[in-house]
Design a protein around this nucleic acid. Structure first.
Lengths: 192, 192
DNA sequence: TGACAATGTAAACGTTTGTTTACTACAATA
DNA sequence: TATTGTAGTAAACAAACGTTTACATTGTCA
């Protein structure tokens, strides 16, 4: 019952990217009085799916989110309702949406750290990076995705691939950091 | 300028999960008249970031989305405005939100296909899977994340780890498929 | 400098908003 | 059967909504 109301709200939201007004909910829920809508919304608010601040309705994170289960190493995944967390991937992966962008990875230079050709990485634009960070950098006029390292003897920064096939890249002229890789995602289309 | 307006809207949205009303935008934009707000919104609507249907404002997908750039293998990433796509990760990775859930990976049994301990996988709940799919399965009362294979000689399904350390798993009694892995994500917290 | 467009102000507008009140219908319980 | 709580209707409310109009200010460029 009340699950139905939440689901109609969800499908309205995924269609229009906003919550319906009470009048719109009248039709959506099949009520004749706004009071009935009011009561439903009250419940959903108390249950933590919606939020009200000075008469304005907004969805909470539970509204969007997808359950996240843990797994025990060998045995049963924890599939009970109690220890269920919720997560939206955008929020989880992208901490600063304004300064972030995505990049489709090409090549196998990060193979050993599990970033493959065709993966998408989330990059946060910033000039400063620490050794150990995976960076999008411009080295001698060529753009690349590598691990930033510090050569302690020579006291310089250089780039290292995560793949034995490639040698370290020491900048001849200059090394410009454009951003830092914060996350990576892969979609499994259809494999054989 | 107009980029500032869009960004204030974005940060309002990421805080409250809804668009501000015109009165709220007054303060947000620093205007004294709602007409000024009206004009800004008009522009953002024409530029495709917002949508209006009968006086109701809603964000479009470009509003949320993050630019996706391609890379040329060695050389320059394509960072021009023209060939910029937009993407929201939730929409990209989760095709069927209702039947999907997330699982935190534990163990190294999928190491060779770049799924590491601590990664999160998106699983779509379904009983049927094809050989080659990565599946969440119950084999002889134990839950696990493996690759589904078909033994052509013996005509049976079995599970295979993506890691030489582990042998194939032939079910003694039964093999139940609970879902199929559609995507995987990894967050790089801080590495050294 | 003068003309013109762009951009903002101020006020007023009819609608729509979410909320509240009073009342009704129905199901569950003892 | 009588009682009590739940869930809905109908109507009325002030407040807030998005829009419009008329006018002022500003910046641009010949």
């Amino acid at each position: 019952m009340r699950q139905d109301f939440l689901n109609s709200l969800k499908s309205f939201y995924s269609k229009y990217r906003r919550l319906p007004s009470y009048s719109e909910m009248l039709k959506l829920f099949g009520f004749a009085s706004k009071k009935a809508v009011f009561d439903v919304i009250q419940r959903l608010t108390e249950e933590g799916f919606l939020n009200k601040n000075n008469r304005k309705l907004s969805p909470t994170s539970s509204f969007f989110a997808i359950p996240l289960y843990g797994v025990v190493k060998a045995g049963y995944p924890i599939l009970t309702e109690e220890n269920k967390q919720y997560l939206t991937l955008d929020e989880y992966l992208i901490e600063d949406p304004v300064s972030s962008f995505l990049l489709k990875v090409s090549g196998d230079s990060l193979f050993d750290i599990g970033i493959f050709d065709g993966d998408i990485v989330i990059i946060e634009r910033k000039k400063e990076a620490k050794p150990g960070d995976i960076v999008l950098a411009e080295i001698d006029n060529e753009w690349t995705l590598k691990i930033l390292r510090r050569d302690r003897k020579r006291q310089v920064l250089y780039l290292e691939a995560a793949n034995d096939k490639y040698p370290p890249f020491y900048p001849k002229r200059e090394l410009k950091i454009y951003g830092v890789v914060k996350a990576s995602v892969r979609k499994f289309e259809r494999m054989n």
